[in-house]
Design a protein around this nucleic acid. Structure first.
Length: 291
DNA sequence: CACCAGGCAAGCC
DNA sequence: GGCTTGCATGGT
């Protein structure tokens, strides 16, 4: 990968295993959206970014090399060898097929606090509405970010959310999830949980710690582990994954979530999280189980 | 109008 | 342990 700066834009050439549509349409991130011209704009780690891609050339608009090195290189998981991951998973013919559809998927390294709140909001919800609720949370409680002549909002920190009531949260229209958000804020405010503490734990221990938050169960904790803590041995099973796993590996017969998890763990092991993302994208692109 | 959306908690047995 | 039900809101 070559990096050069032109005007204020950062241009990456010879980028491999990278596709913006695959990355932002596989359900891991709620803050990036496609613009009319095909570029994507979003906010992460307190910074806004507009990014575009033509073949293996990627442009980060109005972005310094410093921000790329400090923020976006890690956010887009550029340090990881996805070819190796895909080669390993492709020994399974079904995964090989799924990987053809989402060959440019990468698992973003998102902020843990943001992942906790965002995936609490995701519970029994649909992606457009999740995005709306998260956006209103940011607009009402986050900080303003000026970028390329427009105003964006950062995801609110624990400090910025400290002390909010259900009444305060009513503007984001989170429904029954507001009390779960407040419980998370409360546990972090009182020091019962912290980002550093949770990160220090093993995957199994971290999962238990996360599940002590109201509104965080098996599926939401797996998403937080995978998307906010880089624990790729988690395999979140939602309705889409359940359907496609049953379709692909169980002759389309209904299975319990536990059966599917156990099967995925033994089949994909430490690469389960990547397998999950390829399957999720494949299921949604092909609308498996919805017709 | 019913039904559902990247589930979960609480209440049953 | 496993199984049901209610839950806020918005889209179809």
């Amino acid at each position: 990968m070559n990096i050069e700066t032109k005007n204020n834009d950062l241009i990456l050439e010879n980028v491999s295993d990278f596709n913006l549509t695959h990355i932002f349409d596989c359900g891991q991130c709620f803050r990036f959206n496609q613009n009319d011209d095909g570029t994507y704009t979003g906010v992460a780690k307190g910074k806004a970014l507009t990014i575009s891609q033509t073949h293996d050339t990627v442009i980060l608009y109005d972005t310094s090399e410093e921000d790329f090195k400090n923020i976006w290189y890690d956010f887009f998981d550029f340090d990881r060898d996805y070819k190796k991951i895909k080669d390993t998973l492709s020994s399974d013919p079904i995964m090989a097929d799924a990987i053809k559809f989402g060959s440019g998927i990468r698992i973003l390294n998102q902020d843990l606090w943001e992942a906790i709140i965002s995936f609490i909001i995701s519970s029994s919800n649909n992606i457009p509405r999740i995005k709306g609720i998260v956006e209103r949370l940011c607009q009402n409680f986050g900080k303003k970010i000026e970028y390329m002549g427009k105003t964006y909002y950062s995801f609110p920190t624990l400090d910025e959310l400290q002390g909010v009531t259900a009444d305060d949260l009513s503007v984001i229209r989170a429904g029954f999830r507001d009390k779960y958000i407040i419980d998370a804020i409360d546990k972090f405010s009182r020091g019962i949980l912290s980002v550093d503490y949770i990160n220090s734990l093993s995957t199994a221990e971290a999962k238990n710690a996360l599940m002590s938050i109201k509104g965080v169960g098996n599926k939401v904790s797996d998403c937080i582990l995978l998307f906010g803590m880089n624990r790729a041995n988690s395999f979140p099973v939602d309705v889409w994954i359940k359907r496609i796993m049953e379709f692909c590996y169980f002759n389309n017969e209904e299975q319990s979530v536990k059966t599917i998890c156990d099967f995925a763990n033994s089949k994909f092991g430490t690469l389960g999280g990547y397998a999950q993302q390829y399957l999720f994208f494949y299921a949604r692109e092909n609308k498996i189980g919805t017709e």
